[in-house]
Amino acid sequence: MVRYEGKTVITLNVNGQPHEVMVRPADLLLDVLREQLGLTGAKPGCKNGDCGACTVIIDGWPAKSCLVLAVEAEGHVILTVEGLEGKAPIQKSFVKDNAFQCGYCTSGFLMVCHALQMQHPDMPEEHVIEEWLQSNICRCTSYQEIRRAVHGMYNNKGL
């Protein structure tokens, strides 16, 4: 049985690389990504699981990293916005369709959209897109732009 008390070194698989980090069991994955690995793409917006700005992808599914303990993430495959390296179709779509203004919620939305495409390689029905994206809040845009960007991600896959 695994048991962690006090500060412990664990290995996290982030963006295709193993990373050793020293954590307290109560440390949130969000804080460890940001403060130990310098991966500040995941943003704290509420630290209560309500806004989605800290969303990363764990084993192919979106996860709010403020609701995951770093110790729990051991043995799982974690992808952050930095791991997309600017090559994910959704990143280009967001730029083209003006799907952000201040940019703070953007990483979280990008990761939800990217996970959506991982799980649904072909464009799902609109209600599925909505369900997935309702996990996140954007305060700047009208959401119309984000919706358009998701459509763009599917329609311009080959580009």
């Binding site: 049985m1 048991r3 069991p25």
Partner: peptide, 21 residues
């Protein structure tokens, strides 16, 4: 950030979980 110190157990069996608890 959770201020309190927590001990984390990850059992592999029900018996381990129950016993630890």
């Amino acid at each position: 950030m959770i201020p309190c110190d927590v001990v984390y157990y990850r059992p592999g069996t029900l018996m381990e979980a129950y016993e630890a608890y």
